[in-house]
Write a protein that binds this DNA or RNA. Structure first.
Lengths: 179, 179
DNA sequence: TCCTTCATGTAACTAGTTACATGATTAT
DNA sequence: ATAATCATGTAACTAGTTACATGAAGGA
């Protein structure tokens, strides 16, 4: 079976503790979302496939009469996960930004629209940064240092972006030429 | 007809000057690639669709017996493009980074592997930044200021990332605890 | 001669999203 | 009551990539 990065995300999550598909989605939304989104449409079918491949083991764990299936990493799954993490093949970071595409072509529109766009972008990144900052655990204990490092990366990145676009907007507003 | 962001990328490109699908690909690879990739598999069918929708006008412009179809923006296309750029609806930036996903889960692997990964990532961003820097025009004339701003954004972003991962790797290497 | 670049295209595939359906539990 | 949350799932769709095919022109 060919595992995708999303498969490894699932393996990595159940490695932290046994989880349901719902748990994984919650966890991912609160951690990996800013650089790797996932949806239920991937999670549930993929968990089934991983179980079939012997990478995770499913166990019924209903709460009352509300069904719930916990998934636990197997030795095979753990091995596959470790191998994947250890393989440091360089892969490119993929970025897609509609607003940046607009900014790229915005020479043809009026100055005010251009500035407004840059300011919106600055705001977007400020919001993203503060959203991530809210995820930071209040206590200074560090059970999983790298998760915290990655979170701080996200905060720093969006803060940098916010600053860039703020400065850009200010600079554009300060220029006298162009209408 | 429902236009996608990729459609607008094509419109934006042919707005600069009439272009063939091949030209667009070259242009995009040398400019928008770092935040909006495109492939021939999208370009050619989409150009046909845009022509049918009256957004671009195709004209045969063979060089010798080597075929070539130039596409020119129509008034309808120009209007659609301007409207799209002017609409400053806030859309999220999409990021996908396999290596960052590995780093996120790398608490379970050895310290050396973790550091190696961070260094690889630093290198990746250094390379990306210098690749973009090579795109910078040598002459200081600015026909399309925003294109240059977006390029500088890319350079700055990757430089920031490179610095982050370098510092992270150094910090991890400096720590005494953990094996 | 042969490799690279110019140039256009398509078919098959992969990944991922959206929208929906179902139903139990808990909080307001 | 009823809204929100917990929980699982699927079908249809969309976007995008990959791999291939074709062929001419130009340079080594």
């Amino acid at each position: 079976m060919e595992l995708t990065n999303t498969s490894y995300l699932l393996l990595g999550m159940v490695a932290l503790s046994p989880m349901s598909g719902y748990d994984i989605k919650q966890m991912a939304d609160g951690s990996t979302r800013h650089f790797w989104q996932i949806s239920y449409g991937q999670i549930y079918p993929e968990l089934k496939a991983l179980e079939k491949a012997g990478m995770v083991q499913a166990a019924e764990a209903a709460r009352g009469s509300r069904q719930r299936t916990l998934h636990q990493l197997t030795d095979t799954g753990s091995e596959a996960l470790t191998e994947w993490i250890s393989d440091s093949t360089v892969t490119p970071v993929e970025l897609r930004d509609e607003m940046l595409l607009k900014l790229f072509f915005s020479d043809s529109v009026g100055k005010d629209e251009r500035i407004a766009l840059a300011r919106k972008m600055a705001g977007r990144h400020r919001d993203a940064a503060s959203g991530l900052a809210a995820q930071e655990p209040p206590h200074l204990e560090e059970p999983c240092p790298m998760r915290l490092e990655v979170l701080r990366f996200g905060i720093g990145l969006h803060t940098w972006c916010a600053d860039f676009y703020t400065q850009l907007a200010d600079r554009l507003a300060g220029e006298t030429k162009n209408v």
